[in-house]
């Protein structure tokens, strides 16, 4: 059995940058199923056309519930200790998150212009191979914009949309915080399906630094939620935690040694600028010559006869000669 998921980002300490991938990874880790997790950035090769995809003897699944059902049949479940009532709560809370938190997450990531272009699009664009990077991020962006537009009568009123989504999301986060209380996990001492789902939402909202940090701040202000996320990562995704620490140390070291203000990621900026200027100039010059706008005379300097030759056309009476 193998699970192919979207790649993570060490900077944020995330095992994966995608909601569904995180859910499936978390479920597999919680249940202890022997599944190889492969990180990828290209949904093109996936049998279902989407990532994440779970390959097993029954086929390829991209839906979280299908994966959970399959694993349960193989006796890998994290819901052993749950009563039927608690199982129904799992179902209910999944829907609560889908109704209140999912739209806000989708909006902040894929629709809100500042965050989408500066953070998310950049990440997808840089991690995906050419030529898929030109198509997939925009397709997802359009799909999520359609989703948000369908939820509101007046989708052009950004202020209203943002306020409404934030309000619903904050109410939901407060409810989750109240529900978690002081417990380690939502249903006792070991994580369940619900924890997999909630963890994926909270991790993405908490860890990724967006330009609109409203929800991130809200989670930070609920200490039990931030503790919940960090403990889960520490216990089940230690490699990603180490990678995050390494990335932090590297960033810290590089800002210490540099006295000048932080530069862009592009090295040799001056040299590139000069080279591109030279290329542009030579291209324009070559075109000007080819089009006859500029004439470069490679021959001898013109003699007097040459000059007079032009005169002959206009002055009928005059003969050649000065």
């Amino acid at each position: 059995m193998e699970l192919i998921v979207w790649d993570g980002e060490a900077r944020y300490g995330l095992p994966s940058m995608d909601l569904k991938s995180l859910q499936m990874m978390a479920y597999i880790k919680f249940s202890g199923a022997p599944v190889t997790i492969i990180k990828s950035s290209n949904p093109f090769r996936s049998p279902t056309g989407r990532l994440p995809v779970f390959k097993c003897t029954d086929g390829a699944f991209s839906d979280f519930n299908q994966v959970a059902t399959f694993l349960r049949k193989q006796n890998f479940s994290c819901d052993y200790e749950l009563s039927p009532k608690q199982c129904s709560e799992v179902v209910a809370y999944e829907q609560l998150l889908l109704e209140k938190l999912y739209p806000a997450l989708v909006y902040l990531w894929w629709v809100e212009p500042k965050s989408y272009y500066d953070v998310i699009h950049k990440w997808y664009f840089s991690s995906m191979p050419f030529p898929h990077k030109l198509w997939y991020p925009r397709k997802y962006h359009q799909g999520y914009c359609d989703l948000i537009n369908s939820m509101f009568d007046d989708p052009d009123d950004n202020q209203l949309v943002e306020t409404e989504l934030h309000k619903q999301a904050q109410e939901c986060l407060t409810m989750l915080s109240n529900r978690l209380g002081d417990r380690e996990y939502f249903f006792g001492r070991s994580p369940s399906t619900l924890d997999a789902v909630i963890f994926s939402y909270l991790a993405l909202l908490l860890k990724v630094d967006l330009k609109v940090p409203v929800l991130q701040n809200h989670i930070k202000a609920c200490p039990n939620l931030s503790r919940y996320v960090s403990k889960t990562i520490q216990r089940f995704f230690p490699s990603d935690l180490r990678a995050e620490e390494q990335a932090k140390r590297k960033a810290h070291r590089s800002t210490d040694t540099r006295d000048s203000p932080p530069k862009d990621d592009v090295p040799n900026k001056g040299r590139n600028l000069l080279l591109s200027g030279l290329v542009a100039f030579s291209a324009m010059f070559g075109y000007a010559i080819a089009a006859g706008l500029v004439q470069v005379d490679m021959g001898e300097p013109p003699t007097e006869d040459d000059y007079d030759y032009e005169y002959d056309d206009y002055n009928d009476g005059e003969s050649g000669g000065s």
């Binding site: 709560e89 179902v91 209910a92 829907q95 609560l96 889908l98 529900r179």
Partner: peptide, 18 residues
């Protein structure tokens, strides 16, 4: 209490969504 209120909201979401 707050837990029950959260549960109630969750079940209402379930009914509204499904």
């Amino acid at each position: 209490d707050t837990t029950q209120k959260a549960d109630m909201r969750a079940y209402m979401s379930l009914v509204s969504n499904v």
